[in-house]
Design a binder for these strands. Sequence first.
DNA 1: AATGATGATGGAATCGTTTCCATGAGCACT
DNA 2: AGTGCTCATGGAAACGATTCCATCATCATT
Lengths: 335, 335
Amino acid sequence: MSTPGPRRITIKDVAELAGVGVATVSRVLSGGSASAETRERVLDAATKLDYRPSALGRNLRQQRSGGVALLVPDITDGFYARLCDGVLSCARSYREPVTIGVTGDDAEQEADLVGGLLEQSMDRIIAVPTGDGEMWASAVRAGLNVVFADRRVWSPGQHARALDEVPAVLTDDRAGLRTAIEYLTGLGHRKIGFLARQGMSHRVAAFREVMGDLLDEDLVVFARASRDSAYAAAAGLFQRRADLTAVIAGGNMLGEAAVLAARELYVRIPRDLSLIMFDDVPWAELCSPPLTVIAQPASDVGYRAAELVLRHGRRPRTVSLPTELIVRSSCAPRR
Amino acid sequence: MSTPGPRRITIKDVAELAGVGVATVSRVLSGGSASAETRERVLDAATKLDYRPSALGRNLRQQRSGGVALLVPDITDGFYARLCDGVLSCARSYREPVTIGVTGDDAEQEADLVGGLLEQSMDRIIAVPTGDGEMWASAVRAGLNVVFADRRVWSPGQHARALDEVPAVLTDDRAGLRTAIEYLTGLGHRKIGFLARQGMSHRVAAFREVMGDLLDEDLVVFARASRDSAYAAAAGLFQRRADLTAVIAGGNMLGEAAVLAARELYVRIPRDLSLIMFDDVPWAELCSPPLTVIAQPASDVGYRAAELVLRHGRRPRTVSLPTELIVRSSCAPRR
DNA sequence: AATGATGATGGAATCGTTTCCATGAGCACT
DNA sequence: AGTGCTCATGGAAACGATTCCATCATCATT
């Protein structure tokens, strides 16, 4: 014996009360043409009945569900949290709901999530992609409206074409790294390490390029997505190479791990080791010593990506947002 | 001239290929009864055609869209980020998409978001509620399946009944505060302040109660949702009351503000002021000095809340998860 | 052998919207 | 007045699933 409950008010009810056909109501409500008088009658009836169109009916008819999907590697990472916030705040102004998925920087989970979205007939997605070019290419072919954020997928061979069409909002990692590395070399550092995480190949590539002759391949290390793995990578690097005098952490979790590992191993920052971290998180200033960082406009990245996917107007290929080196106290001249 | 594209595979195609009616296909696919042979034929056809049921059709028919909504005050706050992560990870195992909204601790935005969800026919929602009992009561009456997380709405007067039925997953703030306050009084502190944010009235109430005779109403201050406001509140308190010897920050953003304000005002922690912060964030250990915190299982809160809203089985009224005092170096005996 | 119970099955209705198409009215122009 | 054009308008057909209900076969019981 379930509650009968008040039946939902449909477009039919409105049509009836206004004395017009449902088609007319639909037109009026979605801005089509109608005579002034009819329009008023319909609007009146709709208000009187407190009519709310059902997204369900509309979605089925239009063969697409509204809203935007957002895929990030880890929502617990301050950077991606801010990125989400940017997306959310833009989507809000369009009154579009946002569905969030966490990939954990894992290609399989990513593919799973995209599959789920297709099933939901979501056709707009903002993604921080994780690797698999093939998957993204086929998603694009399937009609998915993709915008990449923070990084784009490296396009190997044939699907290059399809993926290069995908708009992306990135930060200018290369410029940030160049500034950071110039700052470090200016302090006399030559042995500079890089702490990366899987999926940061773009940053690693930029690091390699900017370092040029100074590059020591043995000084760039990769961690998996977890905090533990980041710690292990940092500690490993510090122990293995005592000649290291400076290190750049590719993200705030890597930076956190570096500070922790340094403390654990009695490596003093900045006396023994200079540290620069990607991403200016609030605690960078609270840390001891306060960390010199490469600040990224995470929230703007999200906002712009959302604009791109929602406005759907002219779509520029790629937007690149500036980074900024914020000097605090975690770097010192090489001794 | 739009691409005709491969028509979507519907249940009808499967029925045709299997030589059965659509009803039978639907039954087989959703676990109804069917003869072994029919079942096999249908399953075969479905695989052969790579059939994916359309969530749109199903949703319209069942008058509800799948998925869960999640409302948090601020996704940029590490605590809520972890809460989201917990929800996401539980929802993932049910293959349910999660729609996230940010309320900014603002009742109006919250009401807006809930309205949007209703329009989408979302009927399951996990919320960190912000105040307006009337709104939540009417949402529940409208058939929305609500689970509160982290805090519940204070139910004034008549809708108490409806809202008390709403399940909630909370942390045991009271116990956490009791432990913290006992620890502080054990160190000799008597003038203990509390930094709160709007929407933390439950914690403030607990603080008041546990403090008992020691309570000085002038020492509990409220900030709005922003970082700036948190800083202003902390700085204001420190300047106004030089006799303050200990303070408890109601959340990690408040704690951050407290550390910053103390540094700015040359208040030394823990020498001049002992500090305990709600929520153990990774940087608490990196801070100088490392912060003593009341740890909360944020992720579990989200996970349990998601279970409650998804399993829909026996629904316990309220789940309370334990907190833990983690002693680091931000508290010292009163001098 | 007749009757009833059980279970598998498919046709058709339904959910609420948008959109195609036919109709008819009104108007301007020849 | 006749012709043609532009509009507003409403009926009906989608969209793709679930589910009610009637039908029919099979089998057991009397």
